[in-house]
Amino acid sequence: MQVTMTINGESVTKECEPRTLLVHFIRDNVGLRGTHWGCDTSNCGTCVLWVDGEPVKSCTMFAAMADGREVTTVEGLEKNGQLDPIQQGFIECHGLQCGFCTPGMMMTGRWILDNNPHPSEEEIREGISGQLCRCTGYKNIVSAIQWAADHPAENEVKA
């Protein structure tokens, strides 16, 4: 079947099987490999991206379900050669080691801040609790999101 969606602002049309998972569509059919796959059971969250501005686990959706919708992946965070504050925060605070969970964590972190520009530590921990990291023990991921909260991009609406 043919699936059309907007990915990081660009319209993309690709052939795929009806059963193709969104994560495989994005990785294999479209070729954006920043979104990862790490479990069979929607537990790990390495596949988190946004559909219509909401984070989803893309291993739990068919590509066909995203037809006509707007998808944002980690590749869409950087704008005009400028890293998003969430990306810079992960660098500044050593919020990553192997980097495998990082795209999903950053997508959720960005969404948390978009909806709550000054989250408490507890709100951040709760917000990323659907995702797993084996390297960082989470502390520096929390710090990275806090850093981004403290350093909004100039074009961000100040809340």
Binding site: R27, L32, R33, G34, T35, H36, W37, T73, V74, E75, L77, E78, L83, Q87, Q88, F90, I91, E92, H94, L96, G99, F100, T102, P103, M106
Partner: peptide, 19 residues
């Protein structure tokens, strides 16, 4: 010192085996 490797990882440009 900030990590050199982070530049590719935060952009989703790591190169893992499944990539």
């Amino acid at each position: 010192m900030k990590r050199v490797e982070d530049q590719r990882f935060v952009r989703g440009q790591g190169n893992y085996v499944d990539d």
